[in-house]
Deep mutational scan, measured.
Amino acid sequence: MQIFVKTLTGKTITLEVEPSDTIENVKAKIQDKEGIPPDQQRLIFNGKQLEDGRTLSDYNIQKDSTLHLVLR
């Protein structure tokens, strides 16, 4: 499925993911596309910070959902 990740600069990254993917996996995909190390990434969905060990389906993230990427 496709999800979107919006950065603070207003750029939107499109990712191909599975609901069973962990947040860690998603961060690795963002690193592949953008070169941002996962330990600098914080992903936010519906105002909640997403934890590495959880999956997209844990957070009820579905296709065409938009996550927000904050760098630390």
Score class of each variant (00 low, 15 high):
Met1Gln: 12
Met1Phe: 12
Met1His: 10
Met1Ala: 12
Gln2Lys: 01
Gln2Glu: 11
Gln2Pro: 07
Ile3Ser: 00
Ile3Met: 04
Ile3Trp: 00
Ile3His: 00
Ile3Phe: 03
Ile3Ala: 01
Ile3Val: 04
Ile3Glu: 00
Ile3Asn: 00
Phe4Leu: 04
Phe4Val: 06
Phe4His: 04
Phe4Glu: 09
Phe4Met: 01
Val5Ser: 01
Lys6Phe: 11
Lys6Tyr: 12
Thr7Tyr: 12
Thr7Asp: 03
Thr7Ser: 12
Thr7Asn: 02
Thr7Ile: 07
Leu8His: 13
Leu8Gln: 09
Leu8Asp: 14
Leu8Arg: 06
Leu8Thr: 08
Thr9Leu: 01
Thr9Trp: 02
Thr9Phe: 05
Thr9Gln: 04
Thr9Lys: 06
Thr9Glu: 12
Thr9Met: 04
Thr9Asp: 15
Gly10Leu: 06
Gly10Asp: 13
Gly10Lys: 02
Gly10Phe: 01
Gly10Asn: 13
Lys11Phe: 10
Lys11Met: 12
Lys11Gln: 05
Thr12Ala: 02
Thr12Glu: 14
Ile13Met: 11
Ile13Val: 12
Ile13Thr: 11
Ile13Arg: 13
Ile13Gly: 03
Ile13Phe: 03
Ile13Gln: 12
Leu15Thr: 03
Leu15Phe: 09
Leu15Gly: 00
Leu15Ala: 03
Leu15Gln: 04
Glu16Ser: 10
Glu16Thr: 08
Glu16Trp: 02
Glu16Gly: 06
Glu16Gln: 09
Glu16Val: 12
Val17Thr: 07
Val17Phe: 02
Glu18Ser: 06
Glu18Asn: 04
Glu18Trp: 08
Glu18Arg: 07
Glu18Thr: 06
Glu18Gln: 13
Glu18Ile: 05
Glu18Leu: 08
Pro19Lys: 08
Pro19Thr: 12
Pro19His: 03
Pro19Trp: 11
Pro19Val: 08
Pro19Ile: 09
Ser20Lys: 05
Ser20Leu: 07
Ser20Val: 02
Ser20Ile: 10
Ser20Ala: 09
Ser20Tyr: 09
Ser20Trp: 10
Asp21Thr: 06
Asp21Trp: 12
Asp21Phe: 14
Thr22Gly: 13
Thr22Lys: 10
Thr22Ser: 15
Thr22Arg: 03
Ile23Pro: 02
Ile23Arg: 01
Ile23His: 03
Glu24Gly: 03
Glu24His: 02
Glu24Ala: 04
Glu24Ser: 05
Glu24Asp: 03
Glu24Tyr: 01
Glu24Pro: 15
Asn25Gln: 15
Asn25Gly: 11
Asn25Lys: 11
Asn25Met: 15
Asn25Arg: 08
Asn25Glu: 08
Val26Thr: 08
Val26Tyr: 00
Val26Asn: 00
Val26Lys: 00
Val26Trp: 01
Val26Glu: 00
Val26Ile: 14
Val26His: 00
Lys27Ser: 13
Lys27Asp: 00
Ala28Arg: 15
Ala28Ile: 13
Ala28Asn: 10
Ala28Glu: 11
Ala28Pro: 05
Ala28Leu: 05
Ala28Gln: 12
Ala28His: 07
Lys29Arg: 09
Lys29Ile: 03
Lys29Gly: 03
Lys29Val: 01
Lys29Asp: 04
Lys29Asn: 12
Ile30Lys: 00
Ile30Met: 11
Ile30Glu: 00
Ile30Tyr: 06
Ile30Trp: 01
Ile30Leu: 05
Ile30Asn: 01
Gln31Asn: 10
Gln31Asp: 11
Gln31Thr: 05
Asp32Gln: 11
Asp32Arg: 13
Lys33Trp: 09
Lys33Phe: 12
Lys33Leu: 11
Glu34Asp: 01
Glu34His: 07
Glu34Gln: 05
Glu34Met: 03
Glu34Lys: 01
Glu34Ser: 12
Gly35Glu: 02
Gly35Trp: 05
Gly35Ser: 09
Ile36Asn: 08
Ile36Tyr: 08
Ile36His: 02
Pro37Val: 11
Pro37Phe: 05
Pro37Leu: 15
Pro38Ala: 12
Pro38Gln: 11
Asp39Tyr: 08
Asp39Met: 07
Asp39Ser: 10
Gln40Ile: 08
Gln40Val: 05
Gln40Asn: 12
Gln41Trp: 08
Arg42Trp: 07
Arg42Tyr: 05
Arg42Val: 09
Arg42Leu: 11
Leu43Ser: 00
Leu43Lys: 00
Leu43Asn: 00
Leu43Arg: 00
Leu43Tyr: 10
Ile44His: 06
Ile44Thr: 15
Ile44Gln: 09
Ile44Ser: 07
Ile44Tyr: 11
Ile44Lys: 04
Phe45Gly: 07
Phe45Arg: 01
Asn46Asp: 15
Asn46Tyr: 02
Asn46Arg: 02
Asn46Lys: 04
Asn46Val: 06
Asn46Thr: 05
Asn46Phe: 09
Asn46Ile: 07
Gly47Leu: 06
Gly47Asn: 14
Gly47Glu: 14
Lys48Tyr: 14
Lys48Phe: 13
Lys48His: 05
Lys48Met: 13
Lys48Glu: 14
Gln49Pro: 06
Gln49Ile: 12
Leu50Arg: 00
Leu50Tyr: 01
Leu50Ala: 06
Leu50Phe: 08
Leu50Thr: 10
Glu51Pro: 03
Glu51His: 15
Glu51Arg: 02
Glu51Tyr: 02
Glu51Ser: 09
Asp52Glu: 02
Asp52Trp: 03
Asp52Pro: 04
Asp52Arg: 03
Gly53Ala: 13
Gly53Lys: 03
Gly53Leu: 06
Gly53Ile: 06
Arg54Asp: 15
Arg54Thr: 12
Arg54Tyr: 11
Arg54Trp: 04
Arg54Ser: 14
Arg54Phe: 11
Arg54Val: 15
Thr55Leu: 03
Thr55Phe: 12
Thr55Pro: 15
Thr55Ser: 13
Thr55Ala: 10
Thr55Glu: 03
Leu56Glu: 00
Leu56Pro: 03
Leu56Gly: 01
Leu56Met: 05
Ser57Phe: 08
Ser57Trp: 15
Asp58Asn: 09
Asp58Val: 04
Asp58Ile: 09
Asp58Ser: 10
Asp58Pro: 01
Tyr59Ser: 13
Tyr59Asn: 07
Tyr59Ala: 06
Asn60Tyr: 11
Asn60Trp: 05
Asn60Arg: 02
Asn60Met: 11
Asn60Gly: 11
Asn60Lys: 04
Ile61Gln: 00
Ile61Asp: 00
Ile61Glu: 00
Ile61Met: 15
Gln62Phe: 13
Gln62Asp: 09
Gln62Met: 09
Gln62Trp: 08
Gln62His: 04
Gln62Val: 10
Lys63Asn: 04
Lys63Trp: 08
Lys63Phe: 08
Lys63Thr: 09
Lys63Glu: 10
Lys63Asp: 05
Lys63Arg: 10
Lys63Met: 12
Asp64His: 07
Asp64Arg: 01
Ser65Ala: 09
Ser65Val: 05
Ser65His: 13
Thr66Pro: 06
Thr66Val: 04
Thr66Ile: 14
Thr66Tyr: 15
Thr66Met: 13
Thr66Lys: 05
Thr66Gln: 09
Leu67His: 01
Leu67Asp: 01
Leu67Asn: 01
His68Gly: 04
His68Asp: 05
His68Tyr: 05
His68Phe: 03
Leu69Tyr: 04
Leu69Pro: 00
Val70Phe: 07
Val70Leu: 09
Val70Glu: 15
Val70Gly: 05
Val70Pro: 10
Val70Tyr: 14
Val70Trp: 06
Val70Asp: 14
Val70Ala: 14
Val70Ile: 02
Leu71Lys: 07
Leu71Arg: 06
Leu71Gln: 15
Leu71Ile: 04
Leu71Glu: 02
Arg72Pro: 12
Arg72Val: 04
Arg72Gly: 15
